[in-house]
Design a protein around this nucleic acid. Structure first.
Lengths: 225, 225
DNA sequence: TTCATAGTTCGGCAATAACCGAAGCATGCG
DNA sequence: CGCATGCTTCGGTTATTGCCGAACTATGAA
């Protein structure tokens, strides 16, 4: 009758508005304190505390103690991926939160997803990497090609070194606004970092929105032309 | 504070055990009736009805009406993908369920659906009829062609006579094990009857299972070759 | 028409759990 | 030390919602 793991328990955790708000706030990969998350969720601190305990028990969050603060962050990229997927389903049903807020277009254009680039720009970048034969594979199993290694090296990303880490080198992540894949994994993470380092883009404060400078956009386009 | 679509509403839908069981049962892409889903979920039909209405309203399910049955299926691959992702998170926490149960292979191969042939054999027969140009049309509106009339006459089925009756001459029926169409309607009914009359197949007692004799299978294959 | 099956709607009950106030620890600072 | 801050635990209230029995509608078969 029933097959596979019990998804209901996890989904129920994500299904509470307060918890969902907290997780959404953590989608950008930052670590936030319980007090900050309480504010995000719009509930009192003691309520938040209970929620966070449950999320941590389910291994959806990791916590880092630091003095009298406790910093919470998503436990991994896979959590962010599922959250993005759920947003995709929600967006499809027209269940937009309220109306598309003022930040919505910016969010659709470029945003942080965990620690890599999402939105229109993220999907475009993945498309170009693929078209240029810098990443390859089929379905969702993606890898960096030989030519890709050279390309990333030229961009200041040492793929060989990343490959030593435990983290999957290259993954894809489904984009809720574009309904297509963008690049994730260690390479995706480094790619976004380089965009910031080079001054091509910067993060909006307290938001997932990523702003490209005019020149940055131009250079990025040229890079992947 | 809040960015992006409201994932809580969708996640809450997936977070109920009964609904999660229904969705899990639909994960393989088949279409199931409300009664079957009620059984899967372990709740009564009226409870199921409410759940299905909500899932459909959220566009997580699509429904196909067929006679007095309503066949539900996942609305798309993206839904299945999110469910998979949630199972992944659940599995990570060690929330495994009971083992998968054994299926009934005979039922999948050939069975009675009302009064016509379903299962692997039923879908195969419809494919052949279609490929040979004996039935035609598009989408779900199917009719017997001129050549088809001659073919069925040769098999002992008088299409002209059947056309006099109130019952639709030729319909298609969605197959739950193959999740494709097989032939139904008056012609489908007569076809199955002829299979029994000719001794090519027989019904298992108190079951929907249909057993073909070796010779019957051979002759049927030759007929539609 | 009459009967059977598939599914929906309605109403009330019961269990869950989200919420907050208040009190209790723990850490850091002066 | 005393005090403030960050967070957790406890208890009781409240709102939600999942559930089923019963009655109702719709389709099909005889």
């Amino acid at each position: 009758m029933k097959e596979g793991p019990n998804l209901a328990a996890v989904a129920a955790l994500l299904g509470d508005p307060a918890r969902a708000n907290m997780l959404t706030a953590l989608m950008d990969g930052r670590a936030l304190t319980a007090t900050e998350l309480a504010h995000e969720a719009g509930v009192t601190l003691q309520t938040t505390s209970g929620h966070l305990a449950r999320l941590e028990a389910a291994h959806l969050l990791r916590v880092e103690k630091q003095g009298r603060h406790r910093y919470f962050r998503l436990s991994g990229e896979d959590v962010a991926e599922v959250l993005e997927g759920l947003m995709g389903l929600a967006a499809r049903t027209g269940h937009l939160r309220t109306k598309p807020g003022p930040k919505d277009p910016a969010l659709r254009q470029a945003r942080v997803c965990y620690d890599h680039l999402a939105g229109d720009m993220g999907v475009w970048a993945f498309d170009r990497l693929w078209a240029k034969g810098l990443v390859g594979g089929h379905d969702r199993h993606v890898h960096v090609t030989e030519r890709g290694r050279a390309f990333f090296a030229g961009f200041g990303i040492d793929v060989e070194a990343l490959a030593q880490g435990r983290r999957p080198l290259c993954r894809v992540c489904l984009d809720w606004s574009e309904r297509r894949y963008h690049i994730a994994g260690a390479v995706g993470s480094q790619l976004l970092r380089k965009l910031f380092d080079k001054g091509w883009a910067r993060r909006e404060k307290d938001s997932r929105v990523v702003h490209f400078t005019p020149k940055g956009r131009q250079d990025f386009a040229k890079l992947l032309a």
